[in-house]
Amino acid sequence: MSPLLLLLFTLPVIAAHAGPDSKAGPASDPKAEIARGPVQPQAPNAVHTLRQIPEACARLEGMFTGQADDPYTFTVVRISPQCQPRARFVDAAKAKPAQNGWLLNDVIRVPNAACPSQQAVVHVWRKPVDKTAKLDGQGQQRIYLEEQSQKAKAGQLDAIPMFAAQMTVEGAGCTR
């Protein structure tokens, strides 16, 4: 067996045994709430949907740029002007979701079709609200317009769930 073939077969085994203390790859990610299969490789300069979050009226879109200094960009796009959000999408840099009681909701790994050694990794975080609201006799939570209007005027609105997303690019870039 050639040394190159031997190396190609042993690298995945070595990477699999890197252990949970390693800082690279899926072993370092905490377990996400959503188990996602592999994503189709995406071509450069083609906008693609990463995920929709209906409760926040948001869609995550990404694109490989083909540029070495900024190989991947992603944005949060409002789904529809008529959509009434039940959750809020916030800036991950300000919220610091990895350390403030947020839950890892989803990890999306997008391979670059033009450069198989490179992939974009998007972490979607969710911060649930405390559901200790009062229930009526039918076990339902009732929301009354007048009561909510008074709370809004006083600046005491109830907390709503929040989402945040962080993106990194893993792997070496390809030269053309």
Score class of each variant (00 low, 15 high):
residue 169 V to G: 05
residue 51 R to F: 06
residue 3 P to A: 09
residue 138 Q to V: 05
residue 142 R to N: 01
residue 47 V to T: 14
residue 174 C to K: 09
residue 145 L to A: 11
residue 93 A to I: 12
residue 5 L to M: 08
residue 123 H to Y: 06
residue 113 A to C: 00
residue 101 G to H: 12
residue 150 Q to R: 09
residue 8 L to S: 10
residue 83 C to M: 03
residue 15 A to P: 14
residue 112 N to H: 12
residue 25 G to V: 11
residue 69 D to V: 10
residue 71 P to C: 10
residue 41 P to L: 14
residue 126 R to K: 13
residue 149 S to E: 01
residue 154 A to G: 00
residue 49 T to G: 04
residue 43 A to M: 14
residue 1 M to G: 07
residue 45 N to G: 04
residue 37 G to V: 09
residue 174 C to S: 12
residue 103 L to T: 13
residue 37 G to C: 03
residue 9 F to H: 06
residue 105 N to A: 11
residue 165 A to V: 04
residue 174 C to P: 14
residue 33 E to P: 03
residue 84 Q to K: 15
residue 117 S to I: 11
residue 7 L to S: 12
residue 27 A to S: 15
residue 80 S to F: 02
residue 17 H to Y: 12
residue 9 F to W: 07
residue 10 T to H: 04
residue 99 Q to E: 15
residue 20 P to S: 14
residue 162 M to P: 02
residue 139 G to A: 03
residue 72 Y to T: 04
residue 101 G to V: 10
residue 45 N to M: 13
residue 172 A to N: 11
residue 33 E to Q: 15
residue 99 Q to T: 13
residue 116 P to E: 06
residue 164 A to I: 03
residue 124 V to D: 00
residue 103 L to V: 08
residue 74 F to M: 11
residue 79 I to G: 00
residue 37 G to D: 15
residue 154 A to E: 13
residue 68 A to Y: 03
residue 38 P to G: 14
residue 14 I to V: 15
residue 128 P to W: 04
residue 147 E to Q: 02
residue 146 E to C: 01
residue 118 Q to M: 15
residue 75 T to H: 05
residue 167 M to P: 01
residue 63 M to L: 14
residue 176 R to P: 12
residue 133 A to P: 01
residue 70 D to E: 14
residue 70 D to T: 11
residue 66 G to I: 09
residue 98 A to F: 02
residue 168 T to W: 03
residue 120 A to E: 05
residue 23 K to D: 08
residue 118 Q to D: 03
residue 130 D to W: 08
residue 64 F to N: 07
residue 42 Q to G: 07
residue 96 K to S: 02
residue 90 V to C: 02
residue 150 Q to P: 00
residue 142 R to W: 00
residue 119 Q to N: 15
residue 156 Q to M: 10
residue 48 H to Q: 11
